[in-house]
Design a protein around this nucleic acid. Structure first.
Lengths: 172, 172
DNA sequence: ATGAGAAAGTCACATATGAGACTATCTAAA
DNA sequence: TTTAGATAGTCTCATATGTGACTTTCTCAT
């Protein structure tokens, strides 16, 4: 591993790529590690920025994302597909309701469940941060051709559908 | 989205796959989201288990993984490739040293840097948890053929090498 | 050489998170 | 029915984490 550092915040891309390849090859869990590496750089800075600027926590961000494409979802479903613990999602939902960003109704068929719905304010807040996430995903993927992207997403779909086979739900 | 729940902790795989596909397709950042979904199920339960059973934190786990394949690495390099904040890695290193799992020497060429080295105890601890991570990665990938796995890793390599082009180091 | 600015690492404080107990409700089997 | 066990969601407490300030050391342009 070369130890000379780049001059600016933006590293010299050429050297960066070399070092990256050098370092990433070494662990015993290469694929999981590389996924984590790429995803961390996508997600962490974006989410921290949203947290700071909009004053919401990660479970709240995730809850808004879920609600935006599927209203009436319940807390436990958000847990199931987001990987967040139910205590945190619960706190997030309570906070979002307090800020009037969502509304909850008890499910008529099951009094334990609460169906969640975005308010206009919630939808507006979501609209405030999603463009940056979309743009950053585009940048992340810009090194792949259209067909490579399709291929990559296809493999991810396969992996995602396989998740229930090797993991137990109660692990969350 | 179907709302009927599975009977046991292990969901019915068939239904699970359907719901997964159903839910994952909906966000506006599909690929990033799917990566997160798969990775969360790989990483979170594993890491929490290690944290609990071995009494170490996530930055400590990551530091041991790095040191195991490359001794003499510095804290800031671990940050750069792990995505953890330097304050947390710093705390992790201090804790690991206190437990005599690593040793640090000031770099002769740069007195600000500390080169890190595993102790035998540190190596032994690493050896305790890495097999489970390896096995879980194997399970995660078992739905892909050998050639699909190669393909997937190749695409990940491309994405990883591209990271320095769209992200700024100081974002961590 | 020297002074401005960057980098490595540490610290203190506030906040977010994980673990696990708890209530209320539902389900299914005797 | 009744009851044991599962599920949805909330709460409390301890701990881990993010932020930003700080010290020390290095780099590089003047």
């Amino acid at each position: 591993m070369r130890l000379s550092k780049k001059g600016a915040a933006k590293p010299d891309p050429k050297e960066g790529a070399d070092r990256t390849k050098d370092v990433l090859g070494g662990t015993e869990i290469r694929i999981a590690y590389k996924m984590g590496y790429v995803l961390n750089f996508y997600r962490e800075p974006s989410f921290r920025k949203i947290e700071m600027e909009l004053g919401i926590t990660r479970p709240e961000i995730v809850t808004l994302i879920f609600l935006n494409f599927r209203e009436g979802v319940t807390a436990s479903e958000i847990c199931e597909f987001s990987g967040h613990l139910k205590a945190n999602i619960s706190r997030g939902i309570i906070a979002l309701e307090k800020k009037k960003l969502l509304r909850r109704d008890v499910d008529k068929n099951d009094n334990r469940r609460q169906r969640l719905y975005l308010t206009p304010a919630g939808r507006a807040l979501y609209a405030k941060y999603i463009p940056a996430l979309r743009e950053r995903e585009r940048a992340m993927l810009s090194c792949l051709s259209a067909s490579e992207r399709k291929l990559f997403e296809g493999l991810l779909d396969k992996l995602a559908e396989h998740v229930p086979h090797w993991t137990a739900l109660d692990e969350l």
